[in-house]
Design a protein around this nucleic acid. Sequence first.
DNA 1: ATAATTAAGGACAAATTTATCCTTAATTAT
DNA 2: ATAATTAAGGATAAATTTGTCCTTAATTAT
Lengths: 147, 147
Amino acid sequence: MFSKATEYALRATIFIAQKGTEDNKIGIGEISKAIDSPPSFTAKILQALRKNNKIIRSVSGPNGGFYMTEKMRKLPVRAILEAMGENEMLDKCVLGLEKCSETKPCPMHSKYKIIKEQLIELFETKTIQHLADDIKNGAVFINNKSK
Amino acid sequence: MFSKATEYALRATIFIAQKGTEDNKIGIGEISKAIDSPPSFTAKILQALRKNNKIIRSVSGPNGGFYMTEKMRKLPVRAILEAMGENEMLDKCVLGLEKCSETKPCPMHSKYKIIKEQLIELFETKTIQHLADDIKNGAVFINNKSK
DNA sequence: ATAATTAAGGACAAATTTATCCTTAATTAT
DNA sequence: ATAATTAAGGATAAATTTGTCCTTAATTAT
């Protein structure tokens, strides 16, 4: 569905929301280990989420790392997707037709549209905080390892 | 959602279903022009759909080209997706977690699952024929050009 | 039979995505 | 102030996807 970069962005952000606070920041090493992603590549992604999109924060130096403010945690998942350039995906015709639209639909359009709207609704109503809380409540996971 | 290769596969197959019969085969030139796709790349894809998956047929030589049998036209859209290796996509966790499952779900799992099931249902019930007929009936399009 | 036409298939090229490594800058603790 | 720690950022590499081109094989029309 999404690129690997976006998958890492989602996992990392959720992890930071769950564990990182201003006085307990999390390093890229811990993050990439926890979410099973390549550290340097993940770092790049987090840099962008910070600099361009203000979805997370970071500070350098000892005890530095990443964290999120209350406000940031309340952003919808969609904000991450948007930041990662996945807006096009959520907009796009299944058949890849540039010109597909309500007035000139492709043969999948009407049925696909209904499903896509649910997807968008989901990404817009679920906040990062919600997902982090679910993990804290213990019913749900974000790591990729067996145990 | 899907790769470009899959988009071309879907469009080309629908176009062949709509226009190609055993005694009126369609050449790769006409196909790629109609669906706005790179001819050689599209040819590769159609070769595979023919050889490995028997979703379309072709014959070389003058008046050669691609066509589909009745039976082939009745295949669900899902058959094309499967042929193009998109099964994993329809199965995969939104967050890209290898281990995400009913018993060890990611925080998006339960809601995402419901939507994905609708998507699969759609691809399994819609046949290639259905889509081709919709175009013939004139309400719906598959070309990418303005007029 | 020969020539013409069209798909099959192989080799290769370009573009994009994913990933690594190294140096620099910022921040903190001593 | 100095040393240690950690993210920022640039350069580059590897892998994958997308795309092209050319030769070969199959088929048909003459």
